[in-house]
C-alpha cells in the first residue's frame, strides 16, 4: 500500500484539503472549533500525506473530530481509542495516528488504556480536550472537575479529588507531555507540531472551553487579559519566567518543592532552567503540580520530550530478527515441527 504513495511527492495542501464535507456540529462557541482549525492549519505545514493520516476517537463531544477531517478515521467506542490505535500503529508504522479524546473518555472510562499506551510508547499523538465536564451527556462532573463542583449529578458538590492529567501521564512514563489551550492558535500549532514530530507516544492536554456546561472554566488563566500573569510558558534551556515584563519566575525551594517568586526578590540566576530532555521526570512532574487548577499561574508548553524506543518499531525488529535467524515462515515446515510419523 505504501510503495505507490512513496513514488509521488507529498502534494502541497491547504486547510481546505484536510476538511471533510461534513457539517461541524459542535455548539456554537465551543472551544473544539479552534482546536479543529489549528489542526487543519497545521497539517499542510507538516509535509504529511492525507492518505497516511488517521484520526481515531472514542466517545464524547471531542470524539466527533475524525468526521470533520478529510483523512482516514474511526469514531470508536467510549475510552477505547488508545487500544484501537495501538493495534493500528503497531502494524502500520507508515501512518500518522492521532487520538482525539476528552477528560471523561481518556481519564475515566478509558484511563487504563491511556496509561498503558503511554507506558508502551506507542507511536501515536494523543490530544486530550480537557473541559472539566461531561458535555455530550449534558453536564455531569468529570474526573478533572474541581472538588465541590455543583453539576446535575452532584447537586451538593462533587467529592472527588480531580486527576491532574499531566501528572498522570508523567507517572505513566510518557515520553512526550505538553499542555496548550484553545485560545492561542499559534501556541497550539507549535505544541501540536512538536507532538507530531515526536517518535513514540505524545500526550497533549488542551484546555478547552465548553461554553454550554462549564463556560469560562479556564478564563482566569487563558483569557486575553489574564494570560501574561497566569500562564507560564516553558522554553527548553531557558529560565522559567512569566508576567508582562517577565517579572515572575519559578524557583526550587530548599525542601525541593517549586515556588512562584518575583525575579526581583531572588535574582535571575536563582530561576529554574527548564530541561525538557532530562532523563528524570521529577522536575516535569513538579512543574505539572505547580498549579492546582486554572486559578493559579499554570505552566504551558512542552514539559517533557525524551527518546525511548517506540513499541511498533521494536515489534518489527523482533520480526526481522526472527526472519534473519530462521528464514521466512514455511507453513509446511511449521506443521511438521513436532514429532511426525508416516503411515502407509
Amino acid at each position: 500500500m505504501t510503495e505507490v504513495a512513496d513514488a509521488v511527492p507529498v502534494p502541497v495542501t491547504t486547510r481546505k484539503d484536510w476538511s471533510s464535507d461534513q457539517e461541524v456540529r459542535w455548539c456554537p462557541g465551543c472551544g473544539d472549533y479552534s482546536i479543529l482549525a489549528a489542526v487543519q492549519m497545521l497539517l499542510p505545514e507538516l509535509g504529511v500525506r492525507r492518505e497516511r493520516t488517521v484520526f481515531l476517537s472514542g466517545i464524547g463531544c471531542a470524539a466527533r473530530f475524525p468526521y470533520y477531517m478529510n483523512t482516514y478515521g474511526m469514531h470508536s467506542i467510549h475510552g477505547r481509542a488508545p487500544a484501537i490505535a495501538t493495534g493500528l500503529a503497531a502494524t502500520r508504522p507508515d501512518l500518522d495516528v492521532w487520538v482525539v479524546s476528552g477528560d471523561g473518555d481518556a481519564l475515566s472510562i478509558g484511563g487504563n488504556h491511556l496509561v498503558h499506551a503511554l507506558r508502551r510508547n506507542i507511536n501515536i499523538t494523543i490530544l486530550l480536550f480537557n473541559n472539566q465536564i461531561y458535555g455530550l451527556t449534558k453536564g455531569q462532573y468529570s474526573p478533572t472537575s474541581e472538588v465541590a463542583k455543583v453539576t446535575k449529578s452532584t447537586p451538593f458538590g462533587s467529592l472527588e479529588q480531580p486527576f491532574n492529567p499531566l501528572s498522570l501521564a508523567l507517572g505513566a512514563e510518557a515520553t512526550f507531555v505538553a499542555r496548550t489551550h484553545d485560545m492561542d492558535r499559534k501556541h497550539m500549532m507549535e505544541v501540536l507540531r512538536r507532538a507530531h514530530d515526536h517518535r513514540g507516544a505524545s500526550f497533549v492536554e488542551i484546555y478547552q472551553n465548553c461554553n454550554v456546561f462549564n463556560d469560562a472554566a479556564f478564563e482566569g488563566i487563558t483569557g486575553k487579559d489574564n494570560r501574561a500573569e497566569m500562564l507560564i510558558p516553558l522554553v527548553d534551556g531557558e529560565p522559567i519566567r512569566f508576567g508582562a515584563e517577565g517579572q515572575h519566575g519559578v524557583v526550587m525551594s530548599d525542601d525541593g518543592s517549586l515556588a512562584v517568586v518575583d525575579v526581583a526578590d531572588v535574582g535571575e540566576d536563582a530561576l529554574l532552567v527548564h530541561d525538557e530532555h532530562h532523563d528524570n521526570p521529577a522536575l516535569a512532574f513538579q512543574l505539572s503540580r505547580l498549579s492546582h487548577g486554572p486559578v493559579e499561574p499554570t505552566p504551558i508548553g512542552v514539559f517533557r520530550d525524551v527518546e525511548r524506543p517506540e513499541y511498533g518499531a521494536q515489534m518489527a525488529e523482533q520480526i526481522d530478527a526472527a526472519v534473519a535467524r530462521r528464514g521466512s515462515g514455511d507453513l509446511a515446515a511449521l506443521l511438521r515441527s513436532g514429532s511426525t510419523w508416516q503411515v502407509g
Partner: peptide, 15 residues
C-alpha cells in the same frame, strides 16, 4: 480500504 491509498480517505464509526 485500509489507510494508505489517496482518494479513498473515509471515516467509519459506531454511529
Amino acid at each position: 480500504a485500509p489507510p494508505g491509498i489517496a482518494g479513498l480517505e473515509h471515516r467509519i464509526g459506531g454511529l
